[in-house]
Simulated assay, not measured.
Amino acid sequence: MNAVFSFARFSAVLIKEFIQMRRDRVTFAMMIGLPIVQLMLFGFAINADPRHLPTLIELGDNGPITRAVIAGMQNSDYFDFQGVVGGEASGNEALRRGSANFVVVIPQNFERDVVRGHRPEVLLDADASDPSAVGGAAGALGGIVQVAISETFSGPLAGIVPPPPPFSVIVHRQYNPEGKTSTNIVPGLLAIILSMTMVMITAVAIVKESERGTMEMLIATPVRPLEVMLGKILPYVMVGYVQTIVFLTAAYLVFEVPFQGSALAFFMGFNLFIVVNLALGFLISTAARSQMQAMQLSFFTILPSILLSGFMFPFAGMPGWAQFLGQGVPATHFLRITRKVMLKSAEIGDIMPEMGALVLTLLVISAVAMLRYRQTLD
């Protein structure tokens, strides 16, 4: 046995590995693509201090001071005014649906009370189900409006307003008044857990059958692609049921997360989301040639589910292109369903837009999966 290091033998092994790497295109694409995706998402889409959050305003008064307050809030970049609501009920409904993060309520006779030194209260109703979306804006609001007021009452008008702040800002945190992070994270975590396990379990299980040769037996039978797809993914629905029961029990007993909405609405959304993820796992299995590739491709779907769904960062605070991509992530819509049902007392009608998005996603994934499965049969 030659103990002397041979550069020729070393070069042969090295070249062989590069050739093998080139043949394994999925792994090679993961090595190149995953760092790029991480760089783009963490560099551009992730924002720990969200700005331009959708805001509505309820106008009880519309004088110069009110306009100055609104202009100051807009100039701060924290608030993106979407329109005017007609009353308290409309504002609360917008917060419950998730179409607005804030509702600014200007009381009646606001201008008169400011000038007279009565210090009226401006109410900021906030959707605090995601505390990170509220903290920065609420903390900066006092300074924002004070600067706006000081600029409005400059010059000869400066003596009209007394030295103390002319009004106070009251922040009303709805759906999570204590600002507990667990109240926001725990409901969303169910979407991430189901995404990770359902996709990976299905993809790996089907690819394992292909490696063992049992899939060839199915191909030889008259079973149609849709029948194979349903037969493969439905048994894992029970796995999702077990995970969800354990999760909800722990969320209620350990983290004291409420469940205030319709159980039927949650049940419908939960079942649809599981089927979507299982279909996605089936699609991945048609592209992977080994269990390792199936796991790699499954992991590739986890990053968007965590970073683009609104799980860790407010969805409305992300750039427009990131929100566009996030709308195509199934976890985005199920996360909204769980938070609406558990925290905002949502009923079936409240979750229909998210259900429609999940149904559309399921149809697209299923069509592509069956097409690729037919190509595999050929």
Score class of each variant (00 low, 15 high):
N2M: 07
F7D: 11
S11Y: 06
V13L: 15
I15E: 13
K16P: 01
I19G: 15
R25Y: 14
V26A: 02
F28R: 15
L39M: 14
F44Y: 11
R51D: 13
R51S: 14
D61L: 04
P64D: 09
I65S: 15
R67K: 10
A68K: 13
I70M: 12
M73W: 10
Q74H: 10
D77P: 06
D80G: 10
V84G: 02
N92E: 15
L95E: 07
A100T: 06
F102P: 03
F102T: 01
V103K: 04
V105M: 01
Q108R: 15
R112F: 05
D113T: 01
E121W: 07
L124G: 04
L124R: 04
A128L: 04
V145H: 03
T152R: 15
T152W: 10
L157V: 04
L157I: 06
A158W: 07
G159L: 05
V161G: 10
S168R: 12
H172K: 08
R173H: 12
Y175G: 13
N176G: 02
P177G: 05
L189I: 03
I193G: 09
T197F: 09
V199N: 14
M200P: 04
T202E: 01
A205K: 09
S210P: 00
E211T: 06
G213T: 11
T214Q: 05
M217Q: 12
I219K: 07
T221I: 09
T221K: 08
R224W: 02
L234V: 10
V237I: 14
T244R: 14
T249D: 15
Q260P: 02
Q260E: 15
L264A: 15
N271V: 02
L272K: 11
G281E: 00
L283V: 08
L283H: 13
T286P: 08
M295G: 10
M295N: 13
M295L: 13
L308V: 08
M312N: 08
F313K: 01
G326I: 09
A331Q: 05
T332A: 00
F334L: 11
L335C: 14
I337N: 07
I337G: 00
V341N: 07
L343P: 01
S345T: 11
G349I: 01
M355L: 15
M355G: 07
V364F: 06
L371Y: 08
R372S: 06
Q375M: 12
T376I: 13
T376S: 05
